[in-house]
Design a protein around this nucleic acid. Sequence first.
DNA 1: AGTTGTTTACGTCCGG
DNA 2: CCGGACGTAAACAACT
Length: 312
Amino acid sequence: MPRPGRNTYSDQKPPYSYISLTAMAIQSCPEKMLPLSEIYKFIMDRFPYYRENTQRWQNSLRHNLSFNDCFIKIPRRPDQPGKGSFWALHPNCGDMFENGSFLRRRKRFKVGSMQATDPLAPSKPQDAAHYLQQQAKLRLSALHAAAHLPQMPGGYNLSSVSQPSSFKHPFAIENIIAREYKMPGGLAAFSTTGYPLHNQLTPAWPHMYGSGMMDTAAPISMASDYSAYGMPLKSICHGGQTLPAIPVPIKPTPASVPGLPGLPAHIPAFLANSPQSLSPTSPQTATGQSSPAAPGEALPSSASLQSAVAVH
DNA sequence: AGTTGTTTACGTCCGG
DNA sequence: CCGGACGTAAACAACT
């Protein structure tokens, strides 16, 4: 029996297509690739609406993964147990959403039909898969390296490398993801400790969990204990200071700064921020905060994004 | 058996 | 109205 009045506001269907949701999920993890189950988890963690009728929407989502060229299947390595492959975004599908609404794409991404926005990025799915795998490897090694670096007070000054974002549509992934985008004064959503401040979720996104979102999302997907290469992310990212994605132009911005290759300035902050990183001593323990606060990743990038956003 | 992935089909919505 | 994007259902194969 339906229980009206309970959670109703957050039960609304998010205004994002499955493609958008999937893209968000994929973008949220360091390697930019996720297995199907993690995509499911991500979506369910963030959007209560999708905790029901799982059969229905998951079927739709799988359909989208297969059907749309913008998603690439990356096979697991033999030494990696587990079901299914990893899914990634096609390197060239960048402007599929670029500056646009996540509600409805202007045009469907087709492999052959587009000229590469990234000259380095292959267009053939197979090549792209390989390409992405390489990128993921790079990212991982970077994460690994970062884990051994001393804390950087200034953090990685990604803002110096990331492109000053041009106008970002409110529904652009950066903005959807980076809740801080609309924080008053464009204040950076990061404490000096490097921990993101998670509690200012704007009421503008009722379909997601409000301030409680991060609680429920505590065992967040991206922070799942494994990486694309079977290495426990948590061990890689320990310390809370992790290097953001390697300069990999996965989503080059057309209006990018000359001389600056498209950096993943699009690290989805709110997505990437594993709630665990919220606060090591988070008072909200609704979901059993026993897990060691897994460090958020891609934070510096988000910070840079923040600064970029704050500028305009 | 359950999950994952592919494919086909059909309906709805929206913009041109 | 038409075509494209999207959502959903369903059948089926392959895999764990």
